[in-house]
Design a protein around this nucleic acid. Sequence first.
DNA 1: CCCCCCCC
Length: 470
Amino acid sequence: MVNLTPKAIESVMSGDLNLKPVVQVLEIKLIANSKDRYRILVSDGVSTQQALLATQLGDRVRDGILRRGSVVQLIEYICSTVQNRKIIVVLNLEIIITEWEIIGNPKPCPGAESISQKTTDNENVMQSKGVSLNGSSSSVPPPRVRTNSRMNNSNNAPNFGPVVQPSYKPPPSYKSHGAITKNEAPARIIPIAALNPYQGRWAIKARVTAKSEIRRYNNARGDGKVFSFDLLDSDGGEIRATCFNAVVDRFFEVVEVGRVYLISKGSLKPAQKNFNHLKNEWEIFLEATSMVEPSPDEDTSIPQQQFDFRSIDEIQNVENNSIVDVIGIVVSVNPSVTILRKNGLETQRRILNMKDISSRSVELTLWGEFCNREGLELQQMVDSGFSPVLALKAGRVNDFSGKSIGTISSTQLFINPEFPEARRLRDWFDTGGKDASTHSISRDVAPGTKQNEIRKWVSQIKEDGLGRIR
DNA sequence: CCCCCCCC
């Protein structure tokens, strides 16, 4: 016997975010023009309601463990407004039963699809982009499950009055002031993970973890300037924000790495995966009307950085060109050398070695400015007999003669950082790890081809000078 | 609307 949470839909839609109800999934559809975002219909046995699955839950659909008939517990969710309709955005859920017969004879929750009357322009814009969230461009839904069409509901469903920012439950004191108009109420702060282009008003509260320089460009589409910065929120969601031209002037000085901001009124575009390695399929584009305001409180629930450390042992099996975080002890640092790039420009290169508890070591190649900033500092430490901890955020794995790691422009290096992993590594190193035998996953890992052996010799000679070759 | 992620 399965018990769905009574009145779950009603409670969630009226703003109860702590209920964590058990509901049944009646329908799952891929959102039009999306590769991995799903719209689902959930039921409490009496009422049904549309919901969006956060991207990170898509795997469960693709893996087949979340499907039509699944009984799930909604763990983290928010109510949001998409195309003027209230919708649940599910950020996390637990699957109770993968498949169960449809429970009860649930009907669409009344009021959930009410439409405010002044927003048809916005809808047209959404539709002209081919975005469909109401199933109108999808195949006909199965007979058992009624898909709510906007027309049906605006005409027939009971209307609970004008829906104004339904996701925002106004505090009681607002009620005596009459209707809230679109421009008055502050947008609700939502998790970064819930951001998507189909959403109307939103705000996020997030810490800036990285900030680019201003880059000027001149191409077929014209010239201009651009900069971007990366954001992290208290739920661990991350997203990049990008500004162009006049918007650069407006926000470049305002945005500081490490500070927390309230950000709203940007537009969401698909992330450029080639250049943006954050775990988010969207990117925020800030515009002239966007808001980027320092948060009045220093939100300590948002860490300064978020890492996903891989042990060096794991790096061996990581795909070439992957972007990874690594933490290790720097055991050697080579001098900085000047490299002539294929494009004719010169750059600096410095190779160092780091080892970790997996008793593996790896070569890290620092490029450009990293050589004379962190690289020099590391070299001085190692030269003076101290082996520092180095945390590397966003290094790029390459597989020339074994696996090694290189810096890219968005790499960040942290020398002797404070966090627990660093402490753990330090303790390990100081209590025997220093002398533990280490196997390098770089250069001499595989026997390699004759070609590779020769290349290795040549590069070693260039690296160390002839003095060390006997 | 930008952008090469460098070398053997």
